[in-house]
Nucleic acid binder design. Structure first.
Length: 461
RNA sequence: UCCCCGGUAGCUCAGCUGGUAGAGCAAGCGGCUGUUAACCGCUGGGUCGUAGGUUCGAGUCCUACCCGGGGAGCCA
């Protein structure tokens, strides 16, 4: 008899019938009359209670030795539970111990710190919180694909290994098959011609430039893959390896881009609200008391839209001073962004038209020659979750911007070519998937919303 | 990378002004119970992050380093 997933059993309209489940014990309570086992198979937060009566042949010898962490396969009958904490339970007709657990099993039936759980990342998905995180992550992933697929976007696999550095979006990891000493020539410089790709290569910091290639052939595309930054960032919001969603749309200006970004956020949040009810209720109760409110708020209200120049005026008008001064031309600091969305608006904020000197070379220069068609979406508690722009599609302006940025034109030949051969206005944005996960779960450390975090000094598991 | 805080049993922590380590949970054994982070009793368990230093004596004070947390910068 094939095993049932516990989530399916929990969704049944009534009890009855034979079932088989397999999973790991969260708790085992043994008495003289019977044993109670809390079984979880990862399909849902709640798991299911298994009741074992002493008439089973292996009751004394094996069942009574079961404890937290054991893997078992249970055959029995799905019955209505006389207990208070669950609707159904399984009255066991047979139970096999598939995997014993050693005495030093580190997961206990109590609250563990997330710091400790990170040191046992191979076991932490068996906890309530991390189990819920993984399920929400899966649901959000599917929602991302669903959003774009229903709008005729093509999923594009952008390369992991690249030559270009997307205007220095961050420090890059070098990819090489040579050891560092052999790369050095007599003059102390490095010779990459002997390296695997015959050139200096890195892990991608963004799939955007390749996505532009896609958009200028397929109209609308998106990438969704791993991205790497070698920044020495030690914060609860940064990873060295993270997942980024990057749609790119042809014949599209910034206003349309913003509409897609707003719809995208709303749809993914709404999908998780309806697909992960039990997990979100858990987060709302144990992790972040205001989670469901802020998720519903993000779905039901329009983000406030302001230009960078507006934002500066708002910040200048604030009575209490900031640590960092507010002046037109300087980038918004964390405290400024937080004030805007957590105090001034109390919700998502869309900021556009930043000074061109603080933004990337590929952003479309406005007629004022001072600002570019850039957009940042800020979320309360998270900060910048989306960064996007209308791309500069005018060949002459782009060449000039590249040179001003001190970037080698020959490296960007193909990028410039896209402007010469049927170039059109196009726009896109990038969303840090783990930042979205923070917002969706109310978790406070980004290392707890990705299964295996990679950060400076740590790449375990 | 910078600033602040922390690192004591498997886990979560206590240990006051320096005097030779403690609780709860976990584990092992026993008891009890339609139980549900079950409960009760007993037992075992620690080179107090690492390396130096001050002192008759350091978990406690000093220095350096490592690791973790919070904040900042960089960004997604």
């Amino acid at each position: 008899m094939p095993a049932d997933r516990i989530s399916k059993l929990q969704r049944r309209s009534c009890a009855g019938g034979s079932v088989r489940v397999e999973g790991w014990l969260r708790s085992a309570r043994h008495g003289k009359e019977r044993s109670f086992l809390d079984l979880n198979d990862g399909s849902c937060l709640s798991g299911i209670q298994v009741v074992v009566e002493p008439d089973l042949p292996n009751y004394e010898a094996l069942v009574k030795t079961l404890k937290n962490g054991c893997a078992v396969s249970v055959f029995g009958e799905l019955v209505t539970s006389p207990g208070k904490s669950q609707r159904y339970e399984i009255l066991s007709k047979g139970i096999d111990i598939v995997g014993e657990v050693a005495d030093d099993y580190p997961l206990q039936k109590k609250r563990h710190s997330f710091e400790f759980l990170r040191t046992i990342a191979h076991l932490r998905p068996r906890t309530n919180t991390l189990g819920s995180v993984w399920r929400v992550r899966n649901a959000a992933t599917m929602a991302v694909h669903n959003f774009f697929q229903t709008r005729d976007f093509l999923y594009l696999h952008s390369p992991i290994i690249t030559l270009s550095d997307a205007e220095g979006a961050g420090e890059m990891f070098r990819v090489t098959t040579l050891d560092a000493k052999r790369l050095l020539q007599e003059d102390g410089r490095e010779d990459f011609s002997k390296d695997f790709f015959g050139d200096e290569t890195h892990l991608t910091v963004s799939g955007q430039l390749e996505a532009e290639i896609g958009a200028l052939a397929m109209h609308d595309v998106y990438t969704f893959g791993p991205t790497f930054r070698a920044e020495n960032s030690n914060t609860s919001r940064h990873l060295a390896e993270f997942w980024m969603v990057e749609p790119e749309m042809a014949f599209c200006d910034l206003e349309e881009d913003i509409e897609v970004a707003k719809d995208f956020l709303k749809e993914v949040i709404q999908a998780v609200l309806s697909d992960c009810e039990e997990d979100l209720a858990f987060f709302n109760e144990r992790i972040e008391r205001n989670l469901l409110n802020s998720l519903r708020n993000a779905v039901n209200t329009q983000p406030v839209h302001m230009t960078y120049t507006d934002a500066i005026e708002v910040l200048k008008g604030k009575s209490k001073g900031f640590t960092f001064p507010v002046s037109w031309g300087a980038d918004l600091q964390s405290e400024h962004e937080r004030f805007l969305c957590e105090e001034y608006v109390k919700g998502p904020v869309v900021v556009t038209d930043y000074p061109k000197d603080i933004k990337a070379f590929y952003m479309y220069v406005n007629d004022d020659e001072k600002t570019v068609r850039a957009v940042d979406v800020l979320l309360p508690g998270i900060g910048e979750i989306i960064g996007g722009s209308q791309r500069e599609h005018r060949h002459d302006v782009l060449s000039r911007r590249l040179m001003e940025a001190g970037l080698p034109l020959d490296r960007y030949k193909w990028y410039l070519d896209l402007r010469r051969f049927g170039g059109v206005p196009h726009s896109g944005f990038g969303l840090g998937f783990e930042r979205l996960m923070l917002f969706l779960t109310g978790m406070s450390n980004i290392r707890d919303v990705i299964p295996f975090p990679r950060v400076p000094g740590y790449a375990e598991f």
